[in-house]
Design a binder for these strands. Structure first.
Lengths: 147, 147
DNA sequence: TATGCATGTTTGTACATGCAACTATTAAAG
DNA sequence: CTTTAATAGTTGCATGTACAAACATGCATA
């Protein structure tokens, strides 16, 4: 009934793929979203929450919660090291850094596996379409806000 | 950094599109998921929760909550009308039926609008890829369960 | 320098969704 | 016919994510 519906099919697919990703990250003890954020922080230590939110395309409040979680697990820490004392930069701890190899390996395996299951070209095509869509929708959203 | 990642781009896109859909359904007073379920029930009254879950690709527990919400708003009702007294069938109430026109109109507008923004062919292509993916992932999931 | 505006972060609250444990009922096997 | 296993649904708890309001700090201007 909603066979042709982009919304229906996108949400459904996202739920399914999330299941896969969650399974892969379970041994590390992180949910996919948390794992991604940690991986980002490992690669670019010292970003402010604001920047993390932008780069990961999440809301600031969401990033706050995620950093809370990672921080509670002792994997990252906030530092108020800038002149502007409102900002805080986020750094991985030693424990966090120890997960880097596992995280990298897991994401590489997932990438390879999903492409094996779904087909290399299909995945690439879908990714570029989704990226294009995201940009276009954001533009449209801006337009809506200014109208 | 996660530029080529299917998971990252799919979740991001889903968040964005959800925003759009939510806005469109707000005047009706329903979230997109609830609206979709109601629309389904309007088109196929009398399905059991189990069937609703299958057809909408949601978990039974999720459908239970959604029906709770719709039912609290007086839009649908559960009936224990089958010989198997565990089952209940879900029917729209008169108030629910009154929303049909609005729901149909909104979904038609959304479909048209999103295709105007993103391009007709891109949307169709993406939908068929996503559908194919969902099927393949479900097969893979089955295989995982039996292993 | 005091006052008000802008900006970075946190927090309260809400919704979508799932899993696992529970209840109620039916079906199957002894 | 009783015990056991399967099935339909519900519910407690958890996670992901957002919005809006609160809070804290810095900046600009009177």
């Amino acid at each position: 009934m909603f066979d042709e519906c982009l919304y229906f099919n996108a949400t459904k697919f996202t739920r399914l793929i999330n299941f896969f990703w969650a399974e892969a990250y379970r041994p590390i003890g992180l949910s996919p979203s948390h794992a991604y954020l940690l991986q980002f922080i490992l690669n670019q230590p010292g970003e402010t929450l604001q920047n993390l939110a932008e780069k990961m395309d999440l809301k600031l409040s969401t990033v706050t919660r995620f950093v809370d979680v990672l921080s509670a697990k002792g994997l990252v820490e906030r530092r108020k090291e800038n002149k502007d004392k409102r900002e805080c930069s986020v750094y991985p701890t030693i424990e966090g850094k120890e997960l880097k190899t596992d995280l990298d390996r897991t994401s590489k395996i997932l990438r390879k596996e999903i492409r094996k299951i779904l087909g290399d070209k299909s995945v690439s095509d879908t990714v570029s379409l989704l990226k294009k869509f995201s940009i276009q929708i954001k533009i449209e959203k801006e337009r809506g806000n200014n109208a």
